[in-house]
Write a protein that binds this DNA or RNA. Structure first.
Lengths: 350, 350
DNA sequence: ACCTGTAACGTTAGCGCTAACGTTAGCCCC
DNA sequence: GGGGCTAACGTTAGCGCTAACGTTACAGGT
């Protein structure tokens, strides 16, 4: 009776643990010390140009890749930045891609931690997780800002985007108030006097700012001010749908709707159509964010564009300054929005 | 003249480097050795139940968080899995979220590296980057599979999704061939005999499989087989738009279009409408993937659903097996698709 | 009493890297 | 011509953790 030993698995298990070339090997081949090799590959002074070139050539030849975990462990920089965001939402996800581009543009890589669906809260340790390999972390908050409070103790470099009024961390945000004002003015200019508003998730400062602008402008411009015209949403498409249904059921319907974000505008569009009405003939619709989808809808959505690329660049810059100097520059940084007129807004029916 | 020393910055810079509690501190407080503490927090044998509880209590109390970089450096497991994908595409991005859920369900965290736009190729080192903190890496390929060939040398545990015929890495994929066949049969059953097809990016096996099914089924079912009815696409919305424009310009238009993915179906919808036709009255439209958006379009898109959650779970399982044993189980794993009939398909006009 | 075994610990070494110091050789300058 | 300086290196220690071995104590068998 012969027994087949499964040492194949054993061998493979060892192989799976094998690693690439290390800096030590580069140094050995180049005949220099570990530190000289380190200085060379990190482009730091203390090495002659010839030696540097030689070392870089060898590193390249043997396929040396820096071990960022080791770099970070020993107190160095990794040129990786971490991002914490909820990829489920279109705006956030667009923003993350923008941060990735901005990071690469300044010679950094980006690693993303996607927060689970709202409800379950992620362990605080995810920030640590990212920080263990990244130089700093950019957080895009889907929750109320209190989520981060216990992190303020830790001295991890953190920058937030759209974090609201809590001044615990350096922040960059769009000018939500004036953006919303732009939207209302646009509808007003078209001749609308009865405008419905679908709020966002009011635990977020961005939603509150947009709401505040709606109320202020409605008053300033002398628009109809029934309480019914404000329907609570939550920034989700489904929330927009439900809210718009309520607006559609009103005895005196609005002639235009401002949805606090594009996802809700999408949902509102469905509700309006289900009510047998069309956009923009019967009801004008304007959103906020200018997500990629907005231009691709039918009809294309009029909306307020958030300056994604600028916000991303600003956040990266803040973070890198924070990492380098330890103390961030003035903040919050607020960036202007832009009205994008497409085909969902028109003058009201005569 | 007084000089304000800016030692504030200096102090802060030091603070930014501060770290959290380490396992050594836990061990010291508990009055045990480092190794005992390690065994306790990693839930491994060799510690009495009382000591374990005590150590875990202390770890919790002082907010100990394992340093995964250090764990990985010293050869241990981190319970983090890395994902490389292009988040720009809706299907991929949905899939990544599915992987995240599946990972959390088995007690792991997920870190994502988002590939830059097609064109610029990412450095091979991103796989290393992820591997330096993760136990293994799941790659969702947007490019032709040759992208990964130079990685096959490295012995990093890698699992691919939708990677095609290259058997270099364990793979999980949807049954693209039979899925596409389902789509054609559905249109055929409705009475369509003249069906247009918008191909995907044929560098990808998934696109080729769907194309092959279209050709085969068209033959089997005796459908019109003009070459004109196949328009080249690239899996992007824009590509679908352009391809559908060509189909619309045909002297003898198809009565139905099968787009190789939903993004292209979206683009096709625009082109059809611009041609003054409506879906599904004039032209039926069916996609592939069942991205989240598909159900939210107007009208909602009939499509072939890829079993995202199953694919994600399968990939995770493959990866963990690979990490544990060094050699993966049988592969490729092919999972069945499902026809989702919504409102973009109908019998052809009489 | 002796060996063997085993559960429950502790010690040592090292993963790959960088800060923080050496050390050496060559240079300038009064 | 000796002190001081700097560029170009090298050495040492340690980041936080785990594998791979010790070591100890105590149980059980003969």
């Amino acid at each position: 009776m012969q027994v087949e030993p499964d040492n194949v698995e054993g061998t493979a298990a060892v192989m799976a643990q094998s690693r690439g070339p290390t800096l030590a090997e580069v140094a050995r081949i180049a005949g220099v010390s570990l530190m000289t090799a380190s200085r060379a590959v990190n482009n730091r002074p203390g090495v002659s140009d010839e030696k540097r070139e030689e070392i870089l050539g060898i590193a390249d030849a043997i396929g040396y890749v820096a071990n960022r975990a080791a770099q970070k462990l020993s107190g160095g920089r990794t040129h990786v930045i971490g991002v914490i965001a909820q990829l489920h939402t279109p705006f956030t996800s667009d923003l993350v891609l923008g941060i990735g581009s901005a990071a690469r543009a300044v010679g950094h890589e980006m690693l993303v931690y996607s927060l689970p669906d709202e409800g379950r809260r992620p362990p605080d340790s995810v920030v640590d997780l990212l920080h263990q390999v990244a130089d700093g972390v950019i957080v895009i908050l889907p929750y109320a800002s209190d989520y981060l409070t216990n992190l303020s103790r830790s001295h991890i470099p953190i920058v937030t985007i759209e974090a609201g009024e809590t001044a615990e961390f350096p922040t960059v945000a769009a000018d939500n108030y004036h953006g919303a004002a732009q939207a209302i003015r646009h509808l007003h200019d078209l001749g609308h006097r009865r405008i419905g508003f679908i709020t966002g998730n009011e635990r977020l400062a961005s939603a509150r700012d947009r709401h505040r602008a709606f109320v202020d402008l409605r008053h300033q411009l002398g628009l109809d001010a029934d309480d019914d015209l404000v329907a609570m949403g939550d920034f989700t498409q489904r929330g927009g749908f439900v809210a718009a249904e309520r607006l559609m059921a009103l005895a005196s319907r609005p002639t235009a709707i401002f949805a606090a974000n594009d996802a809700q505008a999408l949902g509102a569009m469905t509700a309006i159509r289900q009510a047998g009405l069309s956009v923009p003939q019967d009801i004008s619709l304007i959103g906020f964010d200018d997500i990629l989808l907005a231009a691709q809808m039918h009809p294309p959505l009029t909306t307020i564009r958030q300056p994604l690329a600028q916000m991303a660049r600003a956040a990266i810059k803040l973070l890198l300054t924070l990492v380098a100097k330890g103390e961030p520059p003035a903040t919050p940084i607020t960036l202007p929005t832009q009205l994008i007129v497409r085909e969902t807004t028109a003058p009201p029916r005569a």
